[in-house]
Simulated assay, not measured.
Amino acid sequence: MSSREDETLAQAAVAALTGQLDLAPKPGLPDPRDLGVLAGRRDHCSLRWSAKALAPGLAAMAAAARRTGEPTPQLRAELGAIGRSTEHSVGLAGGGHKGALWALGFLVAAAALLPRAGARDVAAAAKKLAAFNDKGAPRRPSRGSTISAKYGAAGARGEARAGFPHVRRALDALTTARSAGATEAEARLDALLTVMSTLQDTELLYTAGPLGLRHVQAGARGVLESGGTATRAGRDALTALDADLHERGWSPRGSAGLLAGALFLDSLPVAAMTGAV
Rank of each mutant, 00 (worst) to 15 (best):
S3L: 15
A10I: 03
T18F: 07
G19I: 01
Q20M: 11
P25Y: 01
P27N: 03
G28K: 05
G28H: 02
D31F: 09
D31V: 07
R33Q: 13
R33A: 14
G36F: 06
G36V: 05
L38W: 15
L38G: 11
L38V: 11
H44V: 12
H44I: 14
C45I: 13
S46P: 00
L47F: 09
R48L: 15
A51R: 04
A55L: 10
P56I: 00
G57I: 04
A59V: 00
A60S: 06
M61F: 04
A62V: 02
A63D: 03
A65P: 01
A65K: 02
A65F: 04
R67G: 08
T68D: 06
G69I: 01
Q74T: 10
E78M: 08
L79M: 04
I82A: 08
G83H: 01
S85T: 10
V90Y: 06
G91C: 10
A93V: 04
G94F: 06
G96D: 08
G99S: 10
G105D: 00
A110D: 03
L113F: 04
L114H: 01
G118D: 00
G118S: 03
R120F: 13
A124G: 15
K128H: 12
K128P: 01
A130L: 03
F132R: 02
N133S: 14
K135F: 12
K135E: 15
G136Q: 15
G136K: 12
S145G: 09
I147W: 01
I147R: 07
S148D: 02
A149I: 00
G152R: 12
A154S: 07
A156R: 02
E159L: 11
F164S: 10
P165M: 10
H166R: 12
V167Q: 07
D172T: 13
G181L: 09
R188V: 02
R188Y: 02
L189F: 13
A191F: 08
L193A: 09
L193F: 07
V195Y: 05
V195P: 01
T202Q: 07
Y206I: 00
P210Y: 10
P210V: 04
L211M: 08
L211T: 13
G212I: 06
G212F: 11
V216T: 03
Q217A: 08
R221Q: 14
L224Y: 10
G227P: 03
G228W: 13
A230H: 06
D236N: 13
A237C: 10
L238I: 12
T239S: 13
A240P: 02
S251V: 00
P252C: 07
G254H: 05
G254T: 04
A256M: 04
G257R: 00
L259Q: 08
L259I: 07
G261D: 02
F264N: 00
L268C: 03
L268N: 05
P269N: 05
A276D: 13
V277C: 10
